[in-house]
Design a binder for these strands. Structure first.
Length: 313
DNA sequence: AACACTCGCAACCGCGAACGA
DNA sequence: GTCGTTCGCGGTTGCGAGTGT
């Protein structure tokens, strides 16, 4: 770890002059670098609690910190923010990161937005230090493919579900439910690769992955029933808008039956009545969904599935 | 015990986007 | 339209701790 700035000897070269100020005659014109001291943390925290987020250069100045605004912002976002979860990543979070990375690539901020309490830096570090290595060591060709899918460039569709395939397009709006190609789930212990018309057989065993899909792709977890379907109990708040901001075509993950067979469907927003009424409209704009403000554990709290291999505490 | 090596993570850097004058 | 400033993001660095020899 880096030494705290206040542990540095006077005149240490980690003190940099501030912004090319020609009047660099006193310490107030020096900006600290390096680790934050507890005193600096306290100053910044107190200031943020009192005044909230504003112009970061003003924050640095008004809080009495000899730091650049950029440094203050980073410290607050990555370390001091009260809503940070910290601690080790859960298995569910890890799976979610892997899946989102397969869709989004190294868009850490977007991944972080779907992991409440986690920062982009934290996820990035976790990916680079842990997941990447784990997937590599697993030796599975598919897993490596998944791990690297995000590095192929976003214009290049990977075998994993690509967000582009979910984007709204008037010409692509079908009047029927098409089955979506799914990412290959070899990184979890369950389902087979799905072809069109396939169901998850033998139960997917881990609804977390379905949840992950919903997080990242604008899908919903739906309960299928005769003559219609509804949002599966406990998942009412799970619908998130597609990452590309489209408001049109929706995708659903539906439970084929209570034992947990799953089917992935894609339907148009306007074709009521197709697929037994399994049509969901995404209205866009104002929504009760607040991405990034709920917790997976909270979502799953009241959900009980016999085939689940985990339950939220 | 001493050294070398690896790992995890906080923090920095550079770049591009957004915004206002 | 241009310029300067600020912000946010992703990549990278550097250091302490842990582990192996």
């Amino acid at each position: 770890m880096r030494r705290p700035a206040d542990a540095l000897p006077a005149g240490n070269d980690l003190m940099i002059s501030g912004g090319g100020n020609s009047g660099n005659r006193n310490n107030s014109c020096k900006l600290r670098k390096g680790l934050w001291s507890p005193e600096e943390d306290e100053k910044l925290t107190n200031y943020m609690m009192r005044n909230g987020q504003g112009c970061w250069s003003d924050v640095a100045r008004n809080a009495g910190l000899q730091r650049c605004g950029k440094s203050c912002r980073l410290r607050w976002i990555n370390y001091l923010r009260p809503d940070l979860k910290r601690g080790t990543f859960s298995v569910q979070e890890e799976d979610l990161i892997v899946h989102l990375h397969s869709i989004l690539g190294n868009r850490w901020s977007q991944i972080a937005a779907r992991l409440p309490g986690r920062t982009d830096n934290e996820i990035k570090n976790f990916w680079n230090s842990t997941i990447k290595k784990r997937l590599k060591n697993s030796g599975s060709e598919q897993e490596i493919k998944l791990a690297t899918a995000g590095n192929l460039g976003h214009d290049q569709p990977s075998q994993s579900m690509c967000i582009d395939s979910l984007s709204s397009s008037s010409s692509s709006r079908a009047d029927h439910c098409d089955l979506l190609p799914l990412p290959e789930f070899s990184w979890c212990n369950a389902p087979q690769v799905l072809d069109h018309g396939s169901y998850f057989h033998e139960a997917p065993t881990n609804v977390a992955h379905q949840v992950a899909m919903a997080y990242g792709t604008g899908m919903m977890v739906m309960e299928e029933g005769r003559g219609g379907g509804g949002i599966m109990e406990g998942y009412e708040d799970l619908f998130v808008p597609p990452l590309d901001g489209s408001t049109g075509r929706n995708c659903m993950v539906s439970s084929g039956n209570i034992e947990g067979n799953y089917m992935v469907q894609q339907s148009s927003e306007s074709s009521a009545g197709d697929g037994g009424g399994l049509v969901v409209n995404w209205e866009g704009g104002e929504s009760s969904i607040r991405v990034g403000e709920w917790e997976l554990g909270e979502l799953m709290r009241d959900v009980s599935f016999p085939f689940l291999d985990f339950q939220a505490e």
